[in-house]
């Protein structure tokens, strides 16, 4: 990333930022999950997944609430490592 990229990259307009922030905050509002609830959900999910796929690293699992197109989603992303044995 060059100096000029930085210089000329336009700051995103504030409406775009407002929209992204709102979409995120509303998904959380709507399911009534606190960030702590979400972290707990992730811990329990990791335990469950590891029972079936022991090679999964719990730190790699990502659980997030987000809006995609027109629907709110709870998304879990579980990268699988190639078995070494």
């Amino acid at each position: 990333m060059s100096f000029f990229d930085d210089l000329f990259r336009r700051k995103p307009a504030s409406a775009q930022i407002a929209k992204e922030r709102l979409l995120t905050v509303l998904v959380h509002d709507r399911v009534k999950l606190t960030p702590e609830d979400l972290a707990e959900l992730k811990r329990e999910l990791a335990v469950l997944i590891q029972r079936y796929i022991p090679s999964v690293n719990p730190d790699d699992i990502e659980v997030s609430l987000l809006r995609e197109d027109t629907s709110d989603r709870l998304k879990a992303d579980v990268p699988l490592r190639r078995a070494l044995d």
């Binding site: 307009a13 504030s14 409406a15 775009q16 407002a18 929209k19 709102l22 979409l23 509303l26 027109t70």
Partner: peptide
């Protein structure tokens, strides 16, 4: 004026959200 500068949410954006 603010909407066209990207500094205010448009009607479509509010409706989408």
């Amino acid at each position: 004026r603010l909407v066209s500068r990207g500094e205010m949410l448009s009607m479509d954006e509010v409706v989408e959200i």
